[in-house]
Amino acid sequence: MSEHDHDHDHDHQRTVAPMVDEITDFEVLEIALRELCIEKGIFTAEEHRHFTEFAEQIGPTPAAHLVARAWLDPDFKALALSQPMEASKAVGVDWLEPTGFGTPSDFTAFEILEDTPTVHNVIVCALCSCYPRPILGNSPEWYRTPNYRRRLVRWPRPVLQEFGLTLPDGVTVNVQDSNQKHRFMVMPMRPEGTDDWTEDQLAEIVTRDCLIGVALPKAGVTTNVITDTRPAVHPIK
């Protein structure tokens, strides 16, 4: 091999593209289905972009305000428990948006489960990962794992303890299994020490995990907590 060929091979090795993670079967299916729908005129690429941006910006804040308002207003609480989709509109969530008719996975029967001194609710989707996205946003990664889905329905108390939630023996744990056409959200009990709080103050302590049922709201534990971070071992200067 000549010196020129050796240099050429060396340059080629330096410019090889880095390896990337292999895409999953679900991602391949999504790409194929999306491109087919666009080709068939079911929706445009612009409409798909608009819906994706809409879906990505949804979070649990409206649900937190719904719970906080229910704690303060008995009439609104009655509305939330009897007509949860109407109560959702009162906190800025219309389950028909942004398409005007909802989506097959989101426009469903929706129910708010009220915790009591003797019953604690927690939601799961044992077969898939069904979740009330229009009002809670995208589900956390752990909610979608087989580890959570399979174990919660069999051993709810030990799983809740792994989240740091230990319930008294006299409290019944109601595991509510979501499905394709039925979504749930938990309305936890109002914690002590919040008697004179405003809706905004109360909403801050109603975290996403409280709304799923793997945590309880506590004064001082808010959605705005800044966690301590460790400095880099070798910081860039």
Rank of each mutant, 00 (worst) to 15 (best):
G100S: 03
G100F: 00
G102S: 01
G102M: 02
P104I: 04
P104E: 11
S105H: 04
S105E: 14
D106L: 07
A109I: 13
F110H: 04
E111T: 06
T118F: 11
V119I: 12
H120Y: 08
C125H: 08
S129C: 10
Y131L: 04
R133W: 01
L136A: 07
G137F: 06
S139W: 05
E141N: 06
W142G: 03
W142V: 07
Y143Q: 02
N147H: 13
N147Q: 14
N147C: 10
Y148H: 09
R150Q: 10
L152H: 08
V153F: 05
R154C: 02
R154Q: 14
W155F: 15
W155S: 15
P156R: 08
V159W: 02
V159C: 05
L160R: 03
L160T: 10
Q161T: 15
F163T: 13
F163K: 03
G164S: 14
G164M: 13
D169H: 15
G170L: 08
G170E: 14
V171G: 09
V171I: 15
T172L: 11
T172A: 14
T172P: 03
N174W: 00
N174P: 02
N174K: 12
N174Q: 12
V175Q: 02
Q176V: 06
D177L: 00
D177N: 11
D177H: 04
Q180Y: 01
K181N: 11
K181Q: 08
K181A: 03
H182R: 15
H182S: 11
R183D: 06
M185S: 03
V186E: 05
V186D: 02
M187V: 09
M187R: 01
P188M: 05
R190A: 12
R190T: 00
R190H: 08
P191G: 08
D195V: 03
D195C: 06
D195F: 00
D196W: 02
W197P: 07
W197H: 07
D200G: 14
D200L: 13
E204C: 05
E204R: 12
V206E: 03
V206P: 11
T207S: 11
L211K: 07
L211M: 08
L211I: 08
I212C: 12
G213T: 10
A215I: 06
A215Q: 12
A215V: 04
L216D: 08
L216K: 14
G220L: 07
V221M: 10
T222W: 01
T223C: 15
N224Q: 15
N224E: 15
V225C: 00
I226P: 04
I226T: 14
P231Q: 03
P231K: 04
V233H: 01
